[in-house]
Design a protein around this nucleic acid. Structure first.
Length: 214
DNA sequence: GCTTACTCGCGGATTAAGCA
DNA sequence: TGCTTAATCCGCGAGTAAGC
C-alpha cells in the first residue's frame, strides 16, 4: 500500500501504508476506526484525516471497496449471493442491495451469472492515465477500468460479463465518462500505487465522482 | 414448505468541520 | 495533533417476494 504524495507528508504516507496493510490483513473482519487507531498507536481522529489526505478516500471507504472486490470474487467462483455476502464480510444483505445498482450496475445474482439478461453499453475515452472504459446498465455503472489500449479494455469487459449483451454506445456515455475524467483529474499522482490498491482507490473515487455528478 | 433474493426501519458508528 | 458535535452513513435483524 503506497499512498499518493499530494498533500501528505512522508510520515503520514507511512502511517497510511500501515493502515492499509492492517485493513487488508483484517479481511472480512474490518476493524473500527478506534481499533485501527489503537493498533497503530495514534488517535482515530488523526488517522482518519491522514488517511483521507493521503488516499483521497476514508478508511471505511477503502475497507468497503475491498469488501466489494471480495464479494465479486465469491460470486464469480459460483457462490450463491447469501453465502458470498457473508464470506465477503457483510453482516446482512440490506446494505449490499442498496449499493448493488451503484457498485455492480445490476443485482448480485445477475452479476454471479456473468451478467446474463443484462444489457450493457460502454464507451472508451482517452485520459492522462490511459484509455478509460465506462460501462453501464439501466441500473447504473457496472464496470470502469483503465488500460493503455482499447482492445484490452474490451476484452476485460467481456471477461467480466461473459453472458451479458454488450454494445458500444459512445453517444450515451461519453458525457458521463467526461465527467468522471474531470472528477478524477487530480488523482494522477496515484500512479505510484501498487496495481490492486490503485484499482481499489480508483474504483472508490469513481463511485464518489458518480455520486457528485447530478 | 423450503431456499434464495431482496426490502425496510432503527440504532450505533463514522465523517467532516470547527476550534483549541 | 487532539477533541467536540451535528449530520450522514452503515450494519443489523426482521420481514416479504419469488421460484422450485
Amino acid at each position: 500500500c503506497h499512498p499518493r504524495e499530494n498533500g501528505a507528508s512522508p510520515a503520514q504516507r507511512e502511517l497510511v501504508a500501515r493502515a492499509c496493510a492492517a485493513l487488508d490483513a483484517a479481511g472480512e473482519h474490518a476493524p473500527t476506526l478506534a481499533e485501527l487507531g489503537a493498533q497503530l498507536g495514534i488517535s482515530p481522529f488523526h488517522l482518519q484525516r491522514s488517511f483521507k489526505r493521503a488516499m483521497g478516500i476514508t478508511p471505511r471507504q477503502y475497507a468497503a471497496a475491498r469488501r466489494v472486490e471480495r464479494l465479486k470474487m465469491q460470486l464469480k467462483q459460483g457462490e450463491n449471493v447469501t453465502n458470498a455476502l457473508y464470506d465477503a464480510g457483510y453482516g446482512s444483505s440490506s446494505r449490499l442491495y442498496e449499493q448493488a445498482p451503484e457498485r455492480l450496475g445490476m443485482t448480485p445474482a445477475t452479476y454471479g451469472r456473468g451478467g446474463a439478461g443484462a444489457q450493457i453499453v460502454y464507451t472508451i475515452t482517452s485520459t492522462a492515465l490511459g484509455q478509460l472504459l465506462v460501462a453501464a446498465t439501466a441500473r447504473g455503472i457496472c464496470f470502469v477500468s483503465l488500460a493503455y489500449d482499447a482492445p484490452a479494455l474490451e476484452s476485460a469487459l467481456a471477461h467480466e460479463f461473459p453472458a451479458a449483451e454488450i454494445t458500444r454506445d459512445d453517444a450515451a456515455l461519453q458525457a458521463w465518462a467526461g465527467d468522471i475524467v474531470h472528477e478524477l483529474s487530480s488523482d494522477a499522482s496515484a500512479l505510484d500505487l501498487p496495481l490492486d490498491v490503485r484499482a481499489t482507490a480508483f474504483q472508490q473515487r469513481v463511485w464518489q465522482a458518480l455520486r457528485a455528478i447530478p
